[in-house]
Structures are given as C-alpha cells and as structure tokens.
C-alpha cells in the first residue's frame, strides 16, 4: 500500500498522483486531487469518508466510468479502459439495478450473454453463484418479487458470475437495514476468504469498514483526497462478535479520529 512499490507484479491497482476535475457551468469541481494508492492482490480495501469526498468517483475511475484529468492509473497492469474491455472486474452498484423483464437467473446470465459464453457454461455459473449468495431456488422469480436484500444479493451474484479477480463495490449495502446489512457483511467476508479476490469497497459506515477490510482508506472532501491509510491487523477470520472486542474498537477509533482530523467529521453526523 505504498507508492514506491509500483513495479511489483502483485499490484492489482496502481494509482499515482491522480486528479479529476469536473467542469461545471460556474466553477470547476475538484473531485479528486493527488491520489496515490496501491492495492495488492487479495486485499480488501475500504474507501471511507463523508459524502462528496470522491470515494465513489475514485471507484468509478478504477472502473473506467470516469476519466481522470491528470495522473497515472493502471488496473492489472493495463489502463482502466483496457481492463474494462477485458472484463477484469465486477462492479456492484448502490442499488441492485436488476432488469425487471428478466428473472433472477436471466439477470445473472446478462453479463455472460454479453461475453457470449456457451450455454452450458452460463448455466454452471448461474447455479454456482446463486448458491454462493444463498439464492438457490429463486431462479424463476422476478426482481420485484424479492426483498431489497435479496435483490442486492442477486446483483452481487451477477457481478461474481463474470468471475473477476477484482470486485468493485459502491456502497452495496447502503440502502439496506442494519440486520440485513450485518448478514450480508458476514457473507461477503466469507466469500472473500473463499475466493481470494481483491475487493475495493466504498462505504460511509465505520463498523462496516473495520469489520470487512484489510486496509481502510480515509478520505476527506473538497478537494477529494486520501487523508490516511489504516492497516487493519484484526485476524482474517472474523465473526460479527469481533465488533465487541477492544482491538476492533481501537481501529474504529483510529478511523473516526482520521475522519475528524480531516475536518470532515461534522458532515457525516
């Protein structure tokens, strides 16, 4: 997670001195300024910060949904554009964004159809990934017949079906209630441990960030920049109970202190 290790082959994402300015009609908005970030293979990196700190924009730059104004970025050793065309990542949005005219199985099949995979392989991946997110038996249901949590799980299965080594998640559980959220957090952690994927996870919840991540990137707004990168040394095997331990609370306090020090804490309370 340091800037000088860019040549190492296990860097999945390498960002150097990256800035992004949106030109608006009145004044330019500095969404991202001087971002340096290295993400190693197998890391679980959370981007945390108040609204408007550029955490979603940073994720969208990695996904080639936004183009940076200056600086260098590589994903899997190539530009984000090439990485996108190679389908190097799976992206989970804030909302499930399932297509209502497709049933759950067909929604998971959508990226696979676009990749023109053979039918047998599609079927295999649909089955495997729906089982992974606990949705086996809901293949024929339509999105509007499922609860919000189930829809979001289906959208995670859809992202996983691409079988990407890199998973980009933009506040995927933001719209869900706390109970469902806890449950999905636990499932996500198990999934990450099982598949050794690299995950970049945007959140504005401190407990969620501490519970899930190996690295927590604290960001501050106006302009969006990285304030601090906290390495989370909690054991990799975590259950929800870990949130009661002093070690957990200590890291949570460091994150909170980081957010406060970046003069942005007032904005998120």
């Amino acid at each position: 997670m340091t800037a000088e290790s860019e040549q190492k082959s296990d860097q999945v994402i390498s960002i150097e001195n990256l800035s992004l300015t949106f030109q608006t009609s009145d004044a330019p908005v500095h969404a991202l300024a001087d971002i340096d970030l290295q993400v190693e293979q197998g890391a679980f990196v959370s981007l945390i910060g108040p609204s408007g700190c550029g955490k979603t924009t940073l994720l969208r730059v990695i996904a080639d949904l936004e183009t940076p104004t200056s600086g260098a970025i590589s994903v899997n050793g190539v530009t984000p554009h090439e990485a996108r065309l190679q389908r190097a990542y799976g992206y989970v949005f804030q909302a499930a964004s399932l297509y209502p005219w497709r049933n759950i199985a067909k929604n998971v099949a959508l990226p696979l159809e676009i990749m023109s995979l053979p039918k047998a392989e599609r079927e295999r991946r649909i089955k495997a990934n729906l089982e992974l997110v606990d949705l086996a038996g809901f293949e024929k249901k339509y999105p509007w017949q499922l609860s919000g949590g189930m829809q979001q799980r289906a959208s995670i299965a859809r992202a996983l079906a691409v079988e990407p080594a890199l998973l980009l998640m933009d506040e995927p559980f933001g719209a869900l209630d706390e109970i469902v959220r806890d449950h999905l957090n636990e499932q996500l952690l198990q999934l990450w441990a099982k598949t050794s994927k690299t995950v970049v996870f945007v959140t504005h919840s401190i407990p969620e960030a501490v519970f899930l991540s190996t690295h927590i990137v604290v960001m501050s707004p106006r302009p969006g920049r990285i304030h601090e990168i906290i390495v989370n040394d909690l054991p990799a095997e975590r259950t929800l109970d870990v949130r009661e331990t002093p070690e957990f609370l200590q890291i949570a306090n460091r994150v909170r202190a980081g957010l406060r020090a970046s003069h942005s804490y007032d904005d998120i309370t």
């Binding site: 996904a63 080639d64 949904l65 996108r84 065309l85 190679q86 389908r87 990542y89 799976g90 992206y91 949005f93 804030q94 909302a95 964004s97 297509y99 959508l110 990226p111 159809e113 676009i114 990749m115 691409v162």
Partner: peptide, 21 residues
Amino acid sequence: HMQLDLMKTYAANYWQNLFKL
C-alpha cells in the same frame, strides 16, 4: 445512468446495449 453504467462495465457493444437494455 446506473443501468447504462452496468452495461458499460460489461463492455457491451452498441447492439447488445440496444437489444438487452
């Protein structure tokens, strides 16, 4: 936007985007 971005992350071409979304 989200649906269009989703198709973009799949690197869908114009016709796939048209017919599937």
